[in-house]
């Protein structure tokens, strides 16, 4: 029987209240959102907070809106809500590709987007997707809010820049007209963490790649990104040759480790192959978006 160790429970009724509770209980407090990462960790005694500050009831952080040219996702948006949101899928098919393969439909009902990001598992699919999209994380603390690029959000496995006493409150994704994006994942079985996964976001100028974002999960890519591979794509013809080269570069910079999900050399192979597949679909979607914009 797996149960968490003894813990106190406080329910936050607003963001301000949550921040006050976090300040009051200090470093032995832990933020609880959907609990679908934290509670399993507590059962295993991998984390043992003295107090849980439950932010799961803050509906003010549960939204998905487009403001100007930015998609704003409240941190407590459930995975199922992100997957069901047409504005997310229309602008960023990568988010729906990724959500479809995150855990299972029941877990997605309760787990939250912000909770997954703050858990900062090195295999977290959304971390790679938001890295590919060059999203911005909005963090709220006692002194107000600050914005951190997705690629500076994670400082290591299970570690983020969200400090004691702060909350991740929003994820902002810049909308680029005519862009295309995609996510590709290989897992041992449906709903599992990835053995390897790659996301890509592409903007074309004619048939030349004008902008590229590549995110990688579970293959030891620093900050879930592949900047060297991205640079190799800029100005290149959006053809198989450039995509294959980018896959190769992404794999060279990945530092996968052998574990129960697979050997390092296989994960390195996946880093290359899945980068190419994600780029291929992102390019196809960018072409389709460009066509519909011209016909528009």
């Amino acid at each position: 029987m797996q149960v968490p160790a003894y813990v106190e429970y406080e329910r936050a009724t607003s963001v301000e209240h949550a921040l006050a509770l976090l300040a009051r209980f200090g470093p032995r407090a832990q933020v609880l959102a959907g609990g679908h990462s934290l509670i399993p960790m507590m059962k295993l005694r991998l984390v043992q907070p003295e107090t849980l500050v439950d932010v799961g009831h803050l509906t003010e952080l549960r939204y998905l809106t487009v403001t100007g040219s930015v998609l704003r996702i409240g941190a407590l948006t459930r995975h199922a809500e992100l997957l069901a949101a047409p504005e997310a899928g229309r602008h960023f098919p990568i988010l729906h590709d990724a959500e479809r393969v995150i855990a299972d439909p029941i877990v997605r009902q309760w787990g939250t987007v912000g909770g997954s990001l703050c858990q900062a598992d090195p295999s977290e699919d959304l971390s790679a997707a938001f890295a590919a999209l060059n999203a911005t994380m909005v963090i709220t603390g006692p002194d107000g809010t600050r914005a951190v690029p997705a690629r500076q959000f994670h400082t290591g496995p299970y570690e983020t820049v969200v400090a004691q006493g702060e909350l991740l409150t929003e994820i902002q994704v810049p909308i680029t007209p005519g862009a295309g994006s995609a996510y590709e994942k290989v897992g041992r079985r449906v709903g599992d963490w990835p053995v390897g996964a790659a996301g890509a976001a592409i903007r074309l100028d004619g048939d030349v790649i004008a902008a590229a974002g590549i995110g990688l999960a579970a293959v030891g890519a620093e900050h879930f990104a592949a900047p060297e591979a991205e640079r190799s794509l800029i100005g290149a013809q959006a053809g198989e040759q450039a995509l294959a080269r980018a896959g190769q570069i992404a794999a060279e910079h990945a530092r996968p480790v052998t574990d129960q999900r697979g050997p390092a050399d296989y994960k390195r192979h996946l880093a290359s192959e899945l980068t190419v597949r994600a780029l291929r679909r992102a390019v196809a979607r960018a072409r389709a978006a460009g066509r519909s914009a011209r016909e528009g």
Binding site: P4, Y9, L32, G35, H36, I39, P40, L52, I106, V107, Q109, W110
Partner: peptide, 9 residues
């Protein structure tokens, strides 16, 4: 909402 109640307090 259907949830997995072994992972909710």
């Amino acid at each position: 909402t259907p949830v997995k109640s072994c992972t909710i307090l």
